[in-house]
Design a protein around this nucleic acid. Structure first.
Lengths: 118, 118
DNA sequence: GCCAATATATTGCCACGCGATAGGTGGGGG
DNA sequence: CCCCCACCTATCGCGTGGCAATATATTGGC
């Protein structure tokens, strides 16, 4: 099964989501996937082919940092948000807010156009 | 100059925006571009290479309908939303709402994490 | 020992925003 | 009167990134 949102919707905010989860504490890929699933009320079901390339991109951009760790039992690749990542999270959040406000103002007339009459 | 939002953010909601504008009345491409610019407070500056292919896609999907019209002076291609388009607008709006709620719930802990202390 | 869940990774496909480019029309100023 | 410029639509190629499919290894339970 794939994602409940279209791939296009996700595209704008996947980085934001992942960074925000990692801002709440370090974790590894598979667990991140589960956390997103839970935090989104089962709506964001990230595929492995989406998740891992994304993490690699974020790491290449120095927004996150990784380390192989076996102390917790199984060998897993733990990710941690960097200072640059936190900064990006902040600017991305601000852009997200502007974006939502923008769309909402465009949808306003539609919404008030009585979908169900008084 | 390009769009003020990244291409990825736009991707999820461009259809929604265009349909919502057209739901407010028929118009032609160039004017739609200006309307979006104005309605978004200059934030959504759609390029021609984005706008026209998008309109053609929406028309191919029967969500909008076009007609060359010269009665208003210059020859322009007028677009009108169809019944299917209105229906799509409605479902897309609902999905948008779920999407925003989802992201907002993920951002909530970040926002409450004292960006500026009490 | 076998199987399912856990865990990471890669490849190819495809959609689409964007920059660049092109072509045509109409009106106002020189 | 003609030229320029704003207007208006269109297309091509590029890069990005989500996704399905696939591969591979590990661990715990039965």
């Amino acid at each position: 099964m794939s994602n409940r949102f279209g791939p296009d919707l996700l595209r704008g905010s996947l980085d934001l989501m992942v960074l925000s989860v990692l801002a709440g504490g370090s974790t590894y890929g598979y667990d991140l996937q589960q956390k997103l699933l839970a935090a989104s009320n089962e709506l964001v079901q990230l595929q492995a082919g989406t998740l891992y390339p994304l993490l690699h991109r974020l790491e290449a951009d120095k927004l996150i940092r990784s380390r192989w760790e076996a102390s917790t039992g199984r060998k897993r690749k733990w990710y941690e948000i960097t200072a640059a990542g936190k900064q990006r999270l902040s600017t991305q959040t601000a852009e997200w807010d502007r974006y939502v406000a923008c769309i909402e103002s465009m949808l306003a007339p539609i919404r008030s156009a009585a979908p169900h009459p008084v």
